[in-house]
């Protein structure tokens, strides 16, 4: 449906997009996830037509939109700060796109009501947008971008300015609404939990490039690079000190890699740790530096081989050691993840 081909863009001397390619299928929600300044919003603006790339193309429904001006693309874009028109009421804002398409007034009104009830704002037509709460503004902005039935919906950190509790609730609602209207969508965020909740597929961006594109589960379980791992809060990254066949040696012990045995760093995924008896070959032994009770689990920091490893263990497990005691753990083999590149490796 949507295909972004090798898009390059700079602001002055500052390269922002360095050759970005991405495809999204019809009805798919693709999430662009990355730290601020990585170029994800700029990419959205390129697709919308608000920025002109130096190179590359955007193909939609088989045709290039390069020469199509912003107002003729027929895409929807929801801004982080909502950008509601202050001189119009709720209905005026939502109806704006339809008005630009010269939809007759009666039909316009019908569609506005339909979209407003879709986002749960039926009866808000005549309200002043300045007097709405943050969550209500967010719904108006969503309704405004949905009302003209855009062929592609883009959302730029649509929940960024709301508080955490509201975000958690609204992200699920937004996904349901997008799925209900069956739109292809690009969703920009810097919050991994938001991305996991909303996306069919996640594209992780860093410095104008994609680091990894894949299903949320795959990205989380098998991050492709040290950057992705770190960005997702997975910090047990160790350089590979040596290798024999598919066995690699690290500061905390030896592990078997099923593939990519040539990787220069590995992630010891924190979800794969379990307590183990001391002495067996693949056991990691160390000293408990920190133990934090999280309710359903304990967060451990274990110092082993001069490295601090972080992981959680279920709180129900018996006999978990205290701070200052020795501890032995084992890592399930599929949780040893080979990483591309050495950037960000500690040690």
């Amino acid at each position: 449906m949507l295909e972004i081909r090798d898009v390059v863009l700079s602001f002055g001397d500052l390269p922002v997009l360095r050759g970005i390619s991405l495809a999204a299928a019809e009805g798919e929600i693709v999430c662009l996830l990355g730290p601020s300044g990585c170029g994800k919003t700029t990419l959205l603006r390129v697709v919308a037509g608000l920025e002109t790339p130096a190179r590359g193309d955007v193909i939609f429904a088989g045709r290039s939109v390069r020469e199509v001006p912003v107002h003729r693309r027929g895409f929807g874009l929801m801004f982080q700060d909502f950008a509601l028109f202050p001189h119009m009421d709720v209905a005026g804002n939502v109806a704006f796109g339809l008005k630009m398409q010269a939809v007759p007034a009666a039909e316009r009104q019908r569609q506005v009501q339909e979209v407003l009830s879709l986002v749960g704002l039926a009866g808000f037509e005549r309200r002043d947008v300045a007097k709405l709460s943050g969550g209500e503004k967010q719904r108006v902005a969503l309704a405004r971008s949905l009302a003209p039935s855009p062929r592609l919906l883009m959302l730029d950190e649509p929940l960024g300015s709301l508080d955490a509790a509201l975000r958690e609730r609204l992200v699920i609602e937004i996904r349901e609404i997008i799925k209900q209207v069956g739109r292809t969508a690009l969703y920009v965020t810097h919050d991994q939990h938001e991305a996991f909740a909303i996306a069919d597929r996640i594209a992780i961006m860093n410095e104008g490039r994609f680091e990894q594109v894949g299903m949320p589960e795959a990205v989380y379980r098998r991050p492709a690079s040290a950057f992705v791992a770190r960005f997702l809060g997975l910090n047990n990254i160790l350089p590979v000190a040596g290798r024999e066949g598919n066995r690699i040696r690290t500061a905390v012990g030896q592990f078997r890699l099923e593939a990519h045995a040539d990787a220069e760093a590995v992630l010891l995924h924190p979800d794969g740790f379990e307590p183990s008896a001391a002495g067996s070959p693949e056991v990691i032994a160390g000293l408990v530096e920190r133990r934090v009770f999280l309710g359903d689990a304990y967060q451990f920091q274990l110092r082993a081989g001069g490295v601090g490893l972080m992981f959680k263990l279920p709180a129900q497990a018996d006999g978990l050691p205290q701070v200052g005691e020795n501890m032995s753990v084992r890592l399930l083999p599929e949780y040893v993840v080979p990483l591309n590149g050495r950037d960000g490796v500690n040690g």
Binding site: P69, H71, P86
Partner: peptide
């Protein structure tokens, strides 16, 4: 004024005198 406002209008189909 929020520059996004004008961009929002353009994305929604407004241009030129409109």
């Amino acid at each position: 004024q929020n520059p996004r406002m004008e961009e929002a209008a353009r994305v929604l189909g407004a241009a030129g005198w409109r």
